[in-house]
Computed example of a mutant assay.
Amino acid sequence: MSASDVAAEWEAHLALAKRRSPHTVRAYVAAARRWLAHLPATDWSALARLEARDLRRQLARRRADGLSNASAARELSALKAFIAFAAERAGEEDPAPPRLRGPKVKRGIPRPVTPDEAEGLAAEVASTAREDWQGLRDQAVLLLLYGAGLRISEALSLTGDDLPQADRLTITGKGSKQRVVPIMPIVRDAVEVYAEACPHELTKDGALFRGARGGPLGQGAVQKAVARARTALGLPATATPHALRHSFATHLLGEGADLRSLQELLGHASLASTQIYTQVDAKTLLDTYRNAHPREQD
């Protein structure tokens, strides 16, 4: 079996069986292709027998290319999953990838925006868009991120059948996991106003948010609109669309939401991913205290 055949089966497994996101599929397949280029044999049995020292050798090659700790950790995760898949294809029962720890990665604390900054971003993108309906569209997308905690990919995957006419919306997130999120009136109204103004027909199976020519709206268009808005408002580069989702989580936690409920709302598979917001909230409170009670200078 050729390396191309192996990579093709790996890609199909990730996309169809595991339903990974397109970004994850690309990254995992690219990692496998790079490794396969250095391996003498590409049959499933040989790949299933790869050991920790083989992983170390490949990571050393990637490190020589200037790979960071975070990227090396992701590469290791991809290659371990690839070996486990090879073991399954080789017919092994209970396949276990080689035990090898990845590099330590310091998790950055998300930087939320304030409620006023979130409202300012939404208003700015609405007022400076080329067409009025595009401004209403971008504003609706940002309110879904900030008001419902959606990922940008989740907001842009909504269809005409998902128009939030009720007070709840069913979202399909990572790993095709579904969750129900509440939709506040201000968010629902923004989406409905956009839908009425959109010059393109919004079918039940078609994308809800449309680009200028009628195709599905891409993430890049939203990110560029936010970049222009934050520059106009003098906000830092950390004020991105994803920061609005962080803000949703941080502000809810600050209002007393418990971690389990927040985990469900955000669609996190692990509670550990949600716990990072406890650090964010503590930091926000500390910054507020310091700003309100500056120390006297000697």
Score class of each variant (00 low, 15 high):
residue 3 A to F: 00
residue 6 V to D: 07
residue 6 V to I: 15
residue 8 A to T: 14
residue 8 A to G: 04
residue 8 A to M: 11
residue 10 W to P: 05
residue 10 W to Q: 01
residue 11 E to N: 02
residue 12 A to K: 06
residue 12 A to S: 06
residue 13 H to M: 11
residue 14 L to S: 05
residue 15 A to M: 10
residue 16 L to Y: 09
residue 17 A to S: 13
residue 17 A to D: 15
residue 17 A to N: 09
residue 19 R to G: 03
residue 20 R to W: 08
residue 32 A to F: 14
residue 32 A to M: 15
residue 34 R to K: 11
residue 37 A to F: 05
residue 43 D to F: 01
residue 45 S to Q: 11
residue 46 A to E: 03
residue 46 A to I: 02
residue 51 E to F: 00
residue 51 E to L: 03
residue 54 D to P: 04
residue 55 L to D: 03
residue 56 R to H: 11
residue 61 R to F: 13
residue 63 R to Q: 14
residue 64 A to V: 13
residue 68 S to P: 04
residue 68 S to N: 06
residue 70 A to M: 01
residue 71 S to W: 07
residue 73 A to Q: 11
residue 73 A to T: 08
residue 78 A to K: 00
residue 78 A to E: 04
residue 79 L to I: 02
residue 81 A to D: 04
residue 81 A to G: 14
residue 83 I to Q: 01
residue 83 I to G: 00
residue 87 A to R: 12
residue 88 E to Q: 15
residue 91 G to H: 01
residue 91 G to V: 05
residue 93 E to S: 14
residue 94 D to H: 10
residue 95 P to Y: 12
residue 95 P to T: 09
residue 99 R to S: 09
residue 103 P to R: 08
residue 103 P to N: 09
residue 106 K to G: 15
residue 107 R to A: 15
residue 109 I to S: 10
residue 113 V to L: 08
residue 114 T to P: 13
residue 115 P to V: 09
residue 117 E to Q: 15
residue 118 A to D: 01
residue 124 E to G: 07
residue 124 E to N: 09
residue 124 E to W: 10
residue 129 A to V: 03
residue 133 W to G: 01
residue 137 R to S: 05
residue 137 R to N: 03
residue 138 D to T: 08
residue 140 A to P: 09
residue 141 V to Y: 03
residue 143 L to A: 04
residue 144 L to S: 10
residue 152 I to N: 04
residue 155 A to N: 00
residue 158 L to S: 10
residue 158 L to K: 07
residue 160 G to R: 06
residue 161 D to E: 14
residue 162 D to R: 12
residue 163 L to M: 14
residue 168 R to V: 15
residue 169 L to K: 08
residue 171 I to R: 02
residue 172 T to S: 05
residue 173 G to V: 00
residue 174 K to W: 07
residue 174 K to E: 08
residue 174 K to G: 07
residue 174 K to C: 08
residue 182 P to C: 05
residue 183 I to G: 08
residue 187 V to E: 06
residue 188 R to G: 15
residue 189 D to E: 15
residue 189 D to I: 00
residue 192 E to Y: 00
residue 195 A to V: 06
residue 196 E to Q: 14
residue 198 C to L: 05
residue 200 H to G: 09
residue 206 G to F: 00
residue 206 G to H: 11
residue 207 A to K: 06
residue 208 L to Q: 10
residue 220 G to Y: 11
residue 220 G to I: 07
residue 224 K to W: 07
residue 227 A to H: 12
residue 228 R to N: 11
residue 230 R to Y: 01
residue 232 A to W: 06
residue 236 P to G: 05
residue 238 T to V: 01
residue 248 F to R: 02
residue 253 L to F: 08
residue 253 L to A: 04
residue 256 G to W: 03
residue 257 A to Y: 13
residue 261 S to W: 04
residue 261 S to R: 12
residue 263 Q to M: 03
residue 263 Q to W: 01
residue 264 E to G: 09
residue 270 S to Y: 12
residue 270 S to F: 12
residue 276 I to E: 09
residue 276 I to C: 10
residue 280 V to R: 00
residue 283 K to T: 13
residue 284 T to I: 14
residue 286 L to A: 15
residue 291 N to I: 09
residue 294 P to E: 12
residue 294 P to V: 13
